[in-house]
Nucleic acid binder design. Structure first.
Lengths: 155, 155
DNA sequence: CTGCTGGCTTCGAATGCTGAAGTTAGATGG
DNA sequence: CCATCTAACTTCAGCATTCGAAGCCAGCAG
């Protein structure tokens, strides 16, 4: 069974994009990874409409990527903030990989507006692909794809 | 200048998503990485409408992620096929990182429908973040973010 | 009890997606 | 040399999503 003959219905990339691939979702996660937690901060910084923001936050919470927590500032009523869960933070390698591509191909001549570095040595980060035995970094030519255990023919 | 005060206008993640973040774009790139090259194969396998497919292919070619090449099957007229460029293949780490997340959180109980392994040792791949001096794999807690050279205040 | 603020919801207009039908260029068959 | 077929589009009507703006609501300050 080759790729063209296998169903995409249970493709894990596709399912991932159903959760985070809508417009704005990954930008909200980007902001959440940079410490943004409140509705109004998301709205102003990411720059989307309030209706869509409310919808996306609801979906990301339903997906287990964000969770809400109550907070209270002195002299204000309690409110809810949005934080990344473990599952949400597990998107970090993907976010860094997208940022790395953008840094290379879309940055202004001076460089990117945000830098992420190793806190110990101060060197910039790279997303690399290795195998389970730590051979690598690997290129696409060093990889082979096979049908997996749940590969099904296309209807 | 903290993150909430910096403009997202030149954010490299945002610019990346402007190129590949539309619905279907990353799925087309997924298929291209698996060897799909023709209009009709994309249409049938990815399952999107022809109008949108034509638009996405045009945009991905304009972005330098795909390029067209003439091909000719015996007994047919010459046609054009779509292939990933180097720039397109550079999205591979991001694609693997998204697939890895999907494999962990969205796969059927038996596993994913597609497996990617190191061709030398046969072990499955992992997307990891390292620093330029190869410390790693790193977690988000071991990273620090700073404003980069093109950080600008939000208007 | 009046106003203010954060966090939404509602609404009309604009944009985007879908499925189906139509178009075009070059084989191929009669 | 005319009709047919096919891959690769384009056009179109209807539906869904997104946008910007406005409105609503709860609780706190004055």
């Amino acid at each position: 069974m080759n790729w063209l003959e296998t169903s995409t219905e249970n493709c894990t990339v596709q399912r991932t994009l159903e959760l985070v691939g809508e417009k704005w979702s990954l930008l909200l996660i980007r902001d959440a990874m940079n410490g943004v937690r409140r509705f109004d901060d998301f709205r102003r910084h990411v720059g989307l409409s309030e209706a869509v923001l409310a919808d996306r936050l609801r979906k990301l919470v339903a997906a287990g990527i964000l969770e809400t927590a109550a907070y209270r500032e002195p002299g204000s009523r309690t409110r809810r903030e949005y934080r990344l869960t473990r599952k949400g933070w597990d998107l970090w390698p993907a976010m860094i990989a997208l940022k790395q591509w953008g840094d290379r191909y879309t940055a202004d001549p001076e460089g990117p507006p945000l830098e992420v570095r190793h806190s110990d040595c101060g060197e910039p980060l790279r997303a690399v692909i290795v195998c389970a035995e730590d051979h690598g970094p690997l290129t696409p030519r060093q990889a082979r794809t096979h049908p997996g255990p749940s590969a099904r023919p296309r209807s």
